[in-house]
């Protein structure tokens, strides 16, 4: 399949890229990893007339702790997350997520910025970033602004990014002591999108009581969903089997799956329940040992 014709440019700086987006308006799109955009162009689901390749822009590819935040540059590849010692040792929930996205070849190109900006409810980072209470930094003609991830996803392929804005970073507060998270994804085979996925991040007190829990769900709605009632229920409760089971039921109530090739809606709800249990259990274990 040959994509429709387009003009191509490769700006060297962020301000150049923003100016090009201004100049070409709606007909232009950013090209990062290309792992969603190029397949969509081949199938004529996207027909940009102008592609602005941001891959040459320096300083958009980093993973660092700074000022109480973990900061991940928009152009950071999934493979960078997989091989980062900081992610491996301190943010296993992000490693859980990156390592089940697509396959090794796709992960060598696919970027974290693109994964969020694409606004696909089947993508895996959104639920994890919801659970981590992250925010994205968007840079446009009027400078930079920060958007909480929980306000970022507006609908299928629709985000709060304005036309002309580039997602340059996702950042999240460095979790305090006794915090831990986990992401569980059910997929039919390597490289498939999630049948369902569940991300959780919990903070415990000295007695193993949950001070805070956040639960994000993948691919069971038009956007990634936050299971608010499960989160409220867990606050102040011991993270034991019974409470985890109740929270899992509440998480399934927040889900709005539809039946498709990956399975009937009922099955997906059952899987949300099961994966929520597993994710909370693992998050609790990790919080206990942190």
């Amino acid at each position: 399949m040959i994509p429709p014709a387009f003009d191509y440019s490769r700006p060297q700086t962020l301000s150049e890229a923003v100016a090009l987006l201004q100049q070409y308006g709606d007909t232009a799109k950013i090209l990062s990893g290309g792992q969603s955009l190029i397949p969509m162009m081949k199938m004529r689901l996207a027909r940009p007339e102008y592609l602005i390749d941001i891959n040459q822009i320096a300083d958009l590819r980093y993973i660092k702790e700074d000022n109480g935040y973990l900061k991940i540059g928009g152009l950071t590849r999934e493979a960078d997350l997989e091989s980062s010692e900081l992610i491996r040792s301190k943010y296993p929930i992000i490693l859980d997520t990156a390592s089940v996205i697509a396959d090794p070849q796709v992960r060598n190109l696919a970027t974290v910025g693109g994964n969020l900006a694409h606004g696909d409810p089947a993508n895996d980072h959104p639920a994890t970033m919801l659970a981590l209470e992250a925010e994205v930094i968007a840079v446009g003609p009027h400078g930079a602004r920060s958007i909480p991830v929980k306000e970022f996803f507006l609908g299928v392929f629709t985000t709060a990014l304005e036309h002309g804005e580039i997602l340059t970073e996702v950042r999240l507060p460095v979790p305090g002591e006794r915090s831990g998270g986990a992401y569980f994804k059910l997929e039919r085979k390597v490289g498939d999108f999630a049948t369902v996925g569940v991300a959780t991040q919990v903070t415990l007190d000295g007695e193993g009581v949950c001070r805070r829990a956040v639960v994000g769900l993948t691919n069971v709605g038009a956007t990634p969903l936050k299971a608010g009632s499960a989160e409220e229920f867990l606050r102040g409760k011991a993270l034991d089997e019974e409470n985890i089971k109740r929270a899992a039921d509440l998480a399934a109530e927040a889900a709005e799956p539809s039946s498709d090739l990956r399975g009937p809606a009922d099955y997906k709800l059952a899987m949300i329940r099961e994966l929520t249990k597993r994710a909370l259990t693992r998050a609790g274990e990790r919080a206990g040992s942190s």
Partner: peptide
């Protein structure tokens, strides 16, 4: 040095 799918990369990249 990194494996990629050449059907999902433009030559200009």
């Amino acid at each position: 040095g990194h494996p990629v799918k050449s059907c999902t990369v433009f030559a200009v990249q």
